[in-house]
Computed example of a mutant assay.
Amino acid sequence: MLNMERHKIIMGLLKRKGTVKLKELMEVSSSSESTIRRDLAELEDLGALKRVHGGAILSQARTIEMSMVEKSVRNVQEKKRIARLAASLIMDGDCVFLDAGSTTFEVIECLVGRDITVVTNGLMHVEELVSMDLNAYILGGKMKAKTKAVIGGIALDNIMNYRFDKAFIGANGVHIVDGYTTPDMEEALLKRKAMELSDECFIVADSSKLHQSHFAKMFNLEAAVWITDAVDEEEKRSIMKKTSIMEVSV
């Protein structure tokens, strides 16, 4: 296979999944490990990706964020499995904060018939919650057109009226040093406040977010339990020195 063809395959997988493993690239391109490592090094030099342990992640500007529609079509099955595990932690009678994200949105369909109260800053989320006859509140404030998330000072003031048994929060980046991050500072502040107002806090984010670090820090890894899909065993041991991980079963 030509060098250009392999590069096209690598970037196609990265754009679809956000992260790829070295073994996966070797299989789909029928190439040796040394060849794929050389391809990754070349693409990293071009700024197209970032090499990490056992594979690569897509390079993104720290302040750029995908729209809700773009997020919703990536790693769909992983998000659904994560959502089912997250929903299983919610008990009847709980007061829950559900962050405005594509993975947290998947949690909602797992809550049919539950006796719970949900507070959210997601416009799409509250519409779905109400359509399912769940007790739901939405924060007031500034609406982000791209992600349909409510943020800003009014939202921060508004959330202070609540206390939560559990918070389920999305993250754009999960980093061993930088912690949980997101591109938007105002949104990061709201996520941090939701964590502080909750008895238990869970990050719901698929493993493609690992090694990613964005502009605004939400909080440290130890402040929440990370619910995710399969993580490399060596990386898991490193992360679990700082926080707990709940992995979904395949």
Rank of each mutant, 00 (worst) to 15 (best):
N3A: 14
K8V: 01
L13Y: 08
L14C: 02
K15M: 08
K15H: 11
R16C: 01
K21T: 10
K23F: 09
M26P: 00
E27C: 04
V28N: 01
V28L: 03
S31P: 04
E42T: 14
E44M: 14
A48I: 12
K50H: 10
G54P: 12
L58G: 05
L58K: 08
E65L: 02
S67K: 14
M68N: 12
M68P: 13
S72D: 15
V73Q: 03
E78H: 03
K79T: 11
K79P: 03
R84Y: 02
L85Y: 00
L85D: 00
A86L: 10
A87L: 07
S88D: 06
L89N: 02
I90V: 14
D94K: 05
C95N: 14
F97Q: 13
L98M: 14
S102E: 09
S102I: 12
T103D: 04
T104K: 09
F105S: 15
E106Q: 13
L111N: 10
L111K: 13
V112P: 01
V112H: 09
V112R: 13
D115A: 04
T117R: 10
V118C: 07
T120I: 15
N121Q: 01
G122D: 10
L123V: 15
L129S: 14
V130A: 11
D133K: 15
L134M: 09
Y137V: 15
I138S: 15
L139I: 11
G140H: 10
G140D: 11
G140V: 10
K142L: 13
K144W: 06
A145L: 05
T147L: 11
K148I: 04
K148E: 10
K148V: 06
A149R: 07
V150T: 03
V150A: 01
I151C: 09
I151T: 12
D157W: 01
N158I: 06
I159K: 13
N161K: 08
Y162L: 07
F164G: 05
K166C: 06
G170N: 12
A171S: 15
H175T: 05
G179W: 00
G179P: 04
G179V: 02
T181E: 00
T181A: 00
P183Q: 13
P183I: 08
A188I: 14
A188G: 10
L189W: 07
L189P: 06
K193C: 04
A194S: 08
D199V: 11
E200G: 01
E200M: 05
C201P: 01
C201W: 02
V204G: 00
V204R: 00
S208E: 01
L210V: 07
H211Q: 13
H214N: 09
H214K: 12
A216D: 00
A216L: 00
F219R: 14
L221E: 00
E222K: 01
A224D: 00
V225F: 01
I227Y: 12
A230V: 12
A230C: 11
E233K: 09
K236V: 07
R237L: 06
R237K: 07
S238W: 13
S238L: 14
M240T: 10
M240N: 15
M240E: 15
K241G: 01
T243Y: 02
